Simulated scan of single mutants.
Amino acid sequence: MRHEFESRPASESVWLKSWHPRSADAVEAPHCPVEPRTAVERPSLAEGGNTDSTEIDAAFLEAVSRGLSLPEKALAPACLWDETGADLLARAAEDPDCYPASREAGLLGEVAAEVATLVGPEPRVLVFGAAPAGGLDALLTALDRPHPPEILPLDGAAPRPDGDGARPEALLGACLGATAGSLAPADLVAVLERARAILGRGWLLVGTDPNGDTESLLRAHADDGGLMAAFHLNVLHRLARANGDATPDRPSEAGAQAGTDAAAAPLGPEDFRHEARVRLDPFRVETHLVAERAGTLRVGDETIPFAHGESVRTGCAYRYAPGVFQELAADAGWEPVRCWLDPDGLFSLHLLRGEA
């Protein structure tokens, strides 16, 4: 029976330090056993560059305008990614609480040989969304003569089959990194259904983050060191540069003409604070930029009003306990075959097989 994901009123914010889920809150589905792994050495992440361009990016301005025009303001993840943002996130990822990429790579190194045995030789590898190079390399190294991986968007047309149109004997899909965690349950089921239509009776390897410890989530998404806050606030600095004449220390001409009208006064990056929130049903961590006063934010030729305390959501990370994910996968036509947890239970890998 399919789960229905109904539109519900926004759930109450739960401050991370004040909510501690009980162990009984995440009940395992009886599809397949969860296999904890022993500790392994985890690779470190390299820092990126810090040389962003100052050119006005029309696509960026359009995306920001579209997100700020929503009834509940929210920016697409791509808006946060420039070279400065990549550098900040790489530096933040070195913190033990920002663990997913390194945990996934370490876990893949441990289980890739077993995956290769189950999948068989010469698999065609289809990667859904983006995948960290470290984890994907560990998987490809273990596979027996895999085809070069094909990167697929999460939506769009299915790739053309090889040869006479028949599916190859060994098909392996991979949905790694933060891909699954960036999707709400209904969207995740849609991606799993699309993968099922493409892979048929093939295999699908999915990484998910089951962490429900709110204290560690607080440290990861709103750390005292300020790197995650800087990562999210960077979108406002990028917007200021794209606007050209609205920088933190030089008000825009439009703002100067606003006089003493506080509601029309231009907002700069210094007028926002970064905030991390936990919300329930489904369990997720949201990051927001909150306006600390009323004013307007210029986006190209547009002016977007903000009320005092109004926020724009800049990120949303869903946490899927193993049993919860297995239920969603079963709804999408997949049979859970293996589930592995890293030694601390902070990351999980699921190997699925298309149902007959």
Rank of each mutant, 00 (worst) to 15 (best):
M1K: 04
R2K: 09
H3M: 08
E4A: 11
R8P: 00
R8L: 04
V14F: 06
L16P: 04
H20E: 08
P21V: 05
R22G: 14
V27F: 10
E28L: 15
A29L: 07
P30M: 07
H31F: 15
E35Y: 08
V40W: 07
L45C: 05
E47V: 05
G48D: 05
G48S: 10
G49I: 09
G49S: 13
T51S: 14
D52V: 13
T54Q: 14
T54V: 14
I56N: 09
A58Y: 15
E62N: 09
V64S: 00
L70V: 00
P71K: 00
A76L: 08
P77Y: 08
D82L: 06
T84G: 13
T84M: 07
D87L: 08
L88G: 11
A90S: 15
A90M: 08
R91G: 01
A92N: 02
E94C: 13
C98A: 11
R103D: 15
A105W: 02
L108R: 12
V115I: 15
V115Q: 09
V115L: 05
V119Q: 03
P121W: 06
R124S: 07
V125Y: 02
V125C: 07
V127K: 04
V127W: 11
A133F: 10
G134R: 09
G135E: 15
A138V: 14
A138P: 03
A138G: 14
T141N: 12
P148V: 09
P148S: 14
E150C: 11
G156F: 06
A166C: 10
P168N: 06
A170T: 11
L172M: 01
G173P: 05
A174N: 05
G177V: 05
G177W: 03
L183M: 10
D187A: 02
A190V: 01
A190Y: 02
R194K: 06
I198Q: 06
I198W: 05
L199D: 03
L199H: 13
G202E: 03
L204G: 15
L204C: 14
V206F: 04
P210L: 05
N211M: 13
S216D: 12
S216L: 14
S216C: 12
D224V: 02
L227K: 10
N234E: 12
V235A: 02
R241E: 13
A242G: 13
A242I: 10
T247E: 14
T247K: 09
D249L: 07
E253S: 10
A256S: 04
A256C: 05
G259W: 07
T260F: 11
A262V: 13
A262L: 10
G268D: 07
P269A: 07
F272C: 03
R277M: 12
V278K: 06
F283K: 00
R284W: 00
E286D: 14
T287E: 13
H288V: 01
V290R: 09
V290P: 04
E292A: 01
E292M: 07
G295N: 02
R298E: 11
V299P: 00
P305H: 06
F306E: 01
F306I: 02
C316H: 01
A317N: 11
Y320P: 02
V324T: 12
V324Y: 10
Q326M: 11
Q326D: 10
E327Q: 13
E327N: 13
E327Y: 03
G333N: 01
W334L: 05
E335Q: 13
P336G: 05
V337N: 01
P343M: 04
G345N: 00
F347W: 11
S348D: 09
S348C: 14
L349D: 04
R353E: 07
G354D: 04
